[in-house]
Design a protein around this nucleic acid. Sequence first.
RNA 1: CGGGGCGUAGCGCAGCCUGGUCAGCGCGCCGGGUUUGGGUCCCGGAGGUCGCCGGUUCGAAUCCGGCCGCCCCGACCA
Length: 489
Amino acid sequence: MPEKRTIPAQSENFSEWYIQVVLNSGLAEYAPVRGCMIIKPYGYALWQNIQTELDRRIRETGHLNVYFPLLIPVSFFAREAQHIEGFAKECAVVTHYRLHWDAHQQQIAPDPDAQLTEPYVIRPTSETIIWHTFRKWIQSWRDLPIKINQWANVMRWEMRPRLFLRTSEFLWQEGHTAHATRQEAEQEARQMHQMYLEFFREYLAIEPYTGWKSPRERFAGAEQTYTLEGIMRDGKALQMGTSHFLGQNFARAFDVQFTTQEGTREYVWATSWGVSTRLIGALVMAHGDDHGLRLPPRLAPIQVVIIPIWGKDEPAVEDACQQIARMLQQAGIRTHIDLDREHRPGWKFHEYELRGVPVRIVIGPKDIQQRAVEVARRDTGEKQTLPWNDQLPTAIHDLLHTIHNTLLNQYKAFQQQITVEATSFQQMAQALQDGKVVCVPWAGSDHHEEQLQEQHNVTIRCLWTDDYEEPCIVTGQKTRVRALIAPAY
RNA sequence: CGGGGCGUAGCGCAGCCUGGUCAGCGCGCCGGGUUUGGGUCCCGGAGGUCGCCGGUUCGAAUCCGGCCGCCCCGACCA
């Protein structure tokens, strides 16, 4: 039986595979505006599952949710020099507050009489408006720390958009904190970085590389940027989250000082950190295969799909499906029954594989007779028959757990296998040529990094320290610092 | 911004070179029947000012000029 393939093989054309999986699995589709996407119910359910757990962890670590406005006066961006340099090129600007019918052009257009005296920027990130506000909120050491978070949309007018990975508008969570001491702010930035790592491991089944960014790759306005770098199945790195130690840069830019316990005046120390809908792109590219998505069970909108095989006695089959669904739902398992009569079972098997549903249960006349169900795993494709009894929900629950671990272990094995350690520039170049990502001793400068990009089209994704010293591959200087070098999204 | 591709039915496409029964196919949709343990099959039906503007011509989806938009690859970025 020839398979009707709607998506190309991953190995054939990864980029096209990615686009087709996103579109055909029902995660998202293109919007009328370039670079924007419509996040469809299935994709949004996935995002909401990410939100729910992440929000819990953010609040658990002492942060309160807030909402700041979408529009920011353009002058706010002039305050912090690096910040404006980083974002100016990609800002959408609101200049008018009214449309009118332009009789000359025969179209609706901004009313020239309704031009704003000061244009507003649609936020590309909220540091500026938040620090403008912090000035009002902070006078004394008693006002600190302030630890807030907001779930919002932001807009960055990207040159080259890509579904979920780099859309002009995207959804994210941005945390912003203010502290009395450098040490406390640094601690906060590292803590949230660690929180992301645990969340990725426990929910996305991805354990990315972690470390800090080189000065070149740092957030505009940060003193230190901590990052999480996942390696996708095509060997390219994807920045999955960041946490910035902002020093006193924004406090100085917005003149936010406080009176210490000793009565002196000091600038406030800051952090900001965030993850976005890009994580959905990471899930697709880290776990997906030729059949489509493979969603980690703790985030999957549908954890178990039940597919009936109708046979002669349809009511009996439907009833059996309902009973089992109820049993699973009562055990807290997100279960969906597909009672659609139009499509045959084979069609449905393919459909739910494309959509990455972790577990499929098939129920037909045979199963009813034997008081058993056929259970298939999306991650490995394995099928097994489980008895239809009180133990079923527990068995499925355990299976979901196993699937999570399998996905995580497969990811880790892949990441380990694609990573090579090099002790010379030559070795590194060869490994990159072979499609590997490379870990090297590094004490180079911005200049060396620029050369890497020009010559090999790769960047330093992150830096960390090892226990022993090795000579840097570009300077020969002994160093404990290691760099992960890879092509990136 | 550079390179490439595309715009014809809801979706995917053919037709364009060589202007004239070229308004066509597949999927989907609607109606009826059949089938259901890995993408059933058959019959009937609805649906398009061929991206926009202008030109050439007796005649333009097709040729010419201009404009607009989208996608892919690169430089920038979560």
